[in-house]
Structure formats: C-alpha cells, structure tokens
C-alpha cells in the first residue's frame, strides 16, 4: 500500500504527513510536483499537505492546481483512489475542480471573516485547536471511513483562507443531501454554532471538510497530521500526558488505510 505525499513549492507539512502515513503501516514517499506525472499511477492513495504552495500567489492553491500532476491526480481520482487534501491541499482540490467534484470551480475558500453576534470581530489568518463533528455516515468518505457519524475530533487549524463560499445555486443543499459535508466546526459537546469562536473562519454552515460525490476525495481545512500523536496535543489536554498514545488526527490516516484495504 503506497502513498504519495504531494509536494509543491511552498508546501510545508509534507514530512509530518509522511510520518503519519508510515505510522499507520502504509508505505509512502514525498512526490515532488516536477516529477513525471505518469509515475502517480503506481500509488494507491494521495495526500496533498498544507502550506503555501507558490506562496499563495494570485490566491491560495490556484497555481498548484494548474500543474500537470493535478491533471494526473484527477485521473487517479476517477479510478476511485483516495485523495486527502489538508488545508492548502483542500484549496488546491477546490481550484482544480476535484472538489466538490463536478470538474468545475463550484466554490471558493475565501478570506476568513469571523462573525459573532452579528458583528465582524476578526479577519484573516487564525490558528487554534478546534472541535470537529463528523457529519457524514461511516464509510461515506475515504478520509473518515472508520469514523461513526457524530463522533468528535480535536484538531488544530492554521489558515487565512478557509471560508467556504459559493454562488452556485443549491450547492450547499446538494452537499448536505448527498452527505458530502464530512466535518463541521462545533463546540466540545458537538453543537454546531455558526459564529466565532466555534465557527472559526465564517465558513458557510460551519463546513470544515467536504468530499466528492463518490467519497474518495476529501478536502479538510484542519490539520490531522498535527494531532496524530498525543504528545502533539495542547498542554491543557489530559491525553498529552500519555505521549505514546494516539492523537485524534490518527483516525484520518487509519481511515485512508482501511478504505484502500476494502477497495482492493
């Protein structure tokens, strides 16, 4: 089971992501953007890590989305292989049309706008630990394959452009109806409150992650590789005292592994 961790100029989470891939028992390697895209067909799954590909020039993710390797990933996605885009990886998937999955650019991850009690209280880059509620049914999506609907994850975010907006008529309704909304920002009890600080970036309906209609492509703004081990958790979390224990982000990587096993 071989995973390609994609690296574009400006990607900065590829090593942590690769550590996580290997820690759940998958083989993996970092795949630079300028390698022959034909080599991608030899991999069973793909992670597009976070960072600032091409320094976010023009807008986050757009230059990377035009690279030949992304066209190859589109073909691999059509074969049903799992692709998980994290943070900037999610932005790249949106700009390439792989998410929400119509092949067109159907939405944008725009600049964060934090709203509370009807007022804008903050804008722009923000990093914090957030709570996520898994809203898709179990096995709906490759990257949350082993997770039960309604289960909670504590994972960090760090981004300036994660505010899901769209002018596509009825897109949000369709994502909800087809169970493509995989994670929403929520409080520690799992309640979705559509304002800051629970909704950390102003995203429509507190959406933090979506998948394509087939479920094999997942894009998520939070960083599971940064909460893969318990020692990565914040000091106020009691699980941090058990450094060898698994962190909540591990479930994303275990899900991809299980998805590949089941799909084989």
């Amino acid at each position: 089971m071989k995973i390609a961790v994609m690296q574009f100029p400006g990607t900065n989470c590829e090593h942590e992501t690769l550590v996580a891939v290997k820690a759940v028992g998958m083989d993996g390697e970092i795949f630079r953007w300028n390698r022959s895209e034909g080599e991608l067909s030899g991999f069973d799954g793909f992670f597009i890590p976070g960072g600032f590909s091409y320094q976010d020039r023009i807008r986050a993710g757009v230059i990377a989305s035009k690279e030949p390797v992304m066209q190859a990933l589109l073909e691999e996605a059509a074969k049903g292989k799992p692709i998980v885009g994290i943070c900037n990886g999610f932005q790249i998937l949106v700009e390439s049309g792989l998410l929400p999955g119509t092949g067109k650019i159907d939405m944008a991850l725009a600049q964060n706008v934090m709203v509370s009690k009807g007022k804008i209280v903050r804008r722009g880059y923000y990093c914090d630990w957030v709570n996520l509620r898994h809203d898709a049914p179990s096995k709906r999506c490759s990257g949350s394959f082993i997770m039960e609907q309604g289960s909670l994850l504590k994972i960090p975010i760090a981004h300036g452009e994660g505010n899901l907006v769209t002018t596509t008529p009825k897109l949000i309704e369709r994502l909800n109806e087809q169970e493509q909304v995989v994670f929403r920002y929520c409080d520690r009890n799992g309640r979705v409150i559509n304002e800051f600080p629970v909704n950390v970036n102003g995203s429509t309906q507190s959406i933090a992650a979506i998948c394509n209609p087939e479920g094999n492509v997942l894009g998520m703004m939070p960083h599971p590789e940064r909460s893969f081990f318990a020692w990565q958790l914040p000091s106020f979390d009691p699980r941090k005292q058990r450094p060898d224990a698994a962190g909540p982000g591990r479930r994303i990587f275990e899900s991809v592994k299980r998805y590949i096993e089941v799909s084989a």
Partner: peptide, 9 residues
C-alpha cells in the same frame, strides 16, 4: 481561467 475565482472575485 486564472485570475479570478468567480465565487469570491
């Protein structure tokens, strides 16, 4: 094709 995302620009 490149300079805008029509959902925000």
């Amino acid at each position: 094709e490149l300079l805008i995302n029509p959902h925000k620009d």
